[in-house]
Computed example of a mutant assay.
Amino acid sequence: MTGREMLLDPTGMDERTADGTLAPRPVTLRGLTIGLLDNTKPNATALLRAIEAQLRQRTEIGETRLYTKDYFGTPVKDELLTQIAAECDVVITAVGDCGSCSAATVADGILFEREGVPAVSIVSDSFFMSGRAMAKVQGFPGFEFLAAAHPVASLDDDGLRQRAETLTPDVLRVLGVEA
């Protein structure tokens, strides 16, 4: 007689997948520390910095801190998640421009929300369904994330600035803040 085999969750997630509650939203971004999580995809840092510039024009944010994940195709590691949650008031993570990185970017946002840090995840519109599938797998099917027009990786500075101008009002909306 054989024993039962343990099945592993291929997403690498655990019991945290049962919480679908958003972190409390700030009333304003004035003076808050904004975490920018780069997933290592081309132009991720540039897009995040362009959004930072837009936020500085529209609000009175405090400092920003840039962090970089080890690998784009998996969720943020616990150690980095804990560090960012301790150091930042809100987090913006980007950019999902393929299937696995879009799913991981959405998972990152959900993980920050579950740590009590409001988060905005940004994927490209071509991989929106991948992000939506990850939100469902994470037990947070209503998690709102943003979709930038594809592509992002090949954009020049002007194209990134335009994407940031388009995304920033929704970044503020998702965070619950009016400019």
Results as ranks from 00 to 15, higher is better:
Glu5Leu: 15
Met6Lys: 09
Pro10Gln: 03
Asp14Thr: 11
Asp14Lys: 03
Glu15Val: 15
Thr17Leu: 06
Thr17Met: 13
Ala18Asp: 07
Gly20Ala: 15
Leu22Phe: 12
Leu22His: 06
Ala23Glu: 04
Val27Leu: 14
Leu29His: 01
Leu29Trp: 01
Leu29Gln: 02
Asp38Arg: 02
Asp38Val: 09
Lys41Gln: 13
Pro42Glu: 08
Ala44Pro: 04
Thr45Val: 15
Thr45Gly: 06
Ala46Met: 05
Leu48Thr: 09
Ala50Gly: 10
Ala50Arg: 05
Ile51Thr: 06
Ile51Asp: 05
Gln57Gly: 14
Glu60Leu: 13
Glu60Gln: 14
Thr64Trp: 00
Tyr67Trp: 06
Thr68Gly: 10
Tyr71Lys: 13
Tyr71Gln: 13
Gly73Tyr: 00
Gly73Gln: 02
Gly73Val: 07
Val76Leu: 09
Val76Asn: 05
Val76Met: 11
Asp78Leu: 03
Leu80Cys: 04
Leu81Ser: 04
Thr82Ser: 11
Ala85Pro: 09
Glu87Leu: 10
Glu87Ile: 08
Cys88Gly: 07
Asp89Pro: 12
Thr93Lys: 00
Val95Thr: 14
Ser100Tyr: 09
Ala103Met: 15
Val106Leu: 04
Ile110Arg: 00
Leu111Pro: 03
Phe112Asn: 02
Phe112Met: 09
Glu115Tyr: 09
Val117Thr: 13
Ala119Gly: 04
Phe127Thr: 13
Phe128Ile: 13
Met129Phe: 09
Ala135Phe: 03
Gly139Thr: 05
Gly139Pro: 11
Gly142Met: 03
Glu144Pro: 05
Phe145Gly: 10
Ala147Pro: 06
Ala149Pro: 05
His150Glu: 08
His150Phe: 15
Val152Pro: 08
Val152Trp: 00
Ala153Thr: 13
Ser154Met: 10
Ser154His: 02
Leu155Asp: 02
Asp156Tyr: 02
Asp157Trp: 01
Asp157Cys: 08
Asp158Ala: 15
Leu160Tyr: 03
Arg161Phe: 07
Arg163Met: 12
Ala164Asn: 04
Leu167Cys: 11
Asp170Ala: 14
Asp170Ser: 15
Leu172Cys: 07
Val174Ala: 04
Val174Tyr: 02
Glu178Gly: 10
Glu178Cys: 04
Glu178Tyr: 08
Glu178Asp: 12
